[in-house]
């Protein structure tokens, strides 16, 4: 099983880089939802045996991250009727390189004492840290509100990976609560996106500084 877990984790790392380098909003959303599906599969393969709680968590996670959230975002994108290109603050190549630095740093230096010797989890913590960092990069270097939502999702994926270590100990209710939070967050942001669009006829968050009173 560690082989399968590690395979999924490195594909998640690769998807991080592709999300950073892609210029089309639609494909970035698809990449992140693919990442969500892969992560949804992780609890099933992580511990070698399948429990009803893990099955439920995986099912709800996959349905939410692969179908509901992407369709909400694509709908917001369609309603806002904006140019479907990511507008980065620092260019695609620098963001890829930043992401690579974050990934390399996490792989080389980030470990958690006590857990790190186990072969099965040796990649979990570095991957989770790298994904959180990439989420930050996406959040801070993109102008459009929708791409910031994508960054938020990647960030949440990173935290989800970290939570996998506790999946046995964590009650299902907490897991579902996190997913509900995510869902509500995205829901609210989708509405905000529409309002930003209605007020400024663009999704550029730089316009928000001109809000007064």
């Amino acid at each position: 099983m560690p082989n399968l877990v590690n395979t999924i984790l490195v594909i998640v790392l690769a998807l991080n880089l592709f999300a950073l380098g892609n210029s089309r909003l639609m494909s970035v959303i698809r990449i992140v939802s693919a990442q969500g599906v892969l992560l949804g599969l992780l609890p099933l393969v992580m511990h070698g045996h399948i429990t009803i709680a893990a099955l439920l968590a995986a099912g709800v996670g996959i349905i939410l991250k692969a179908i509901i959230i992407p369709s909400m975002m694509l709908r917001a994108l369609r309603d806002a009727d904006i140019k479907r290109e990511v507008e980065p603050l620092i260019g695609f190549l620098p963001s890829i390189i930043l992401g690579a630095l974050a990934t390399g740093f996490s792989l080389l230096f980030v470990t958690l004492p006590g857990l790190a010797d186990e072969a099965a989890v040796s990649l979990v913590i570095p991957t989770s840290f790298a994904t959180v960092l990439v989420g930050f990069i996406l959040l801070t270097t993109r102008y459009k509100a929708i791409s910031q939502v994508v960054g938020y999702l990647v960030l949440e994926n990173g935290i989800f990976i970290f939570g996998l270590l506790l999946v046995e100990a964590l009650p299902l209710v907490v897991e579902m609560g996190v997913l509900l939070d995510l869902f509500v967050g995205i829901f609210v942001i989708s509405i905000i996106v529409n309002h930003i669009n209605a007020a400024f006829s663009s999704l550029d968050t730089r316009h928000l500084v001109s809000l007064k009173e």
């Binding site: 390189i97 690579a100 792989l107 080389l108 990649l123």
Partner: peptide, 26 residues
């Protein structure tokens, strides 16, 4: 891909292979 986006893909390939090497030596 648009011509000026091709290098991004190739740099991603370099980074992936580099990350593989880092994983092996760490």
């Amino acid at each position: 891909l648009r011509m000026n986006h091709v290098p991004h893909l190739l740099v991603a390939a370099i980074i992936l292979c580099g990350a593989a090497f880092v994983l092996l030596v760490r």
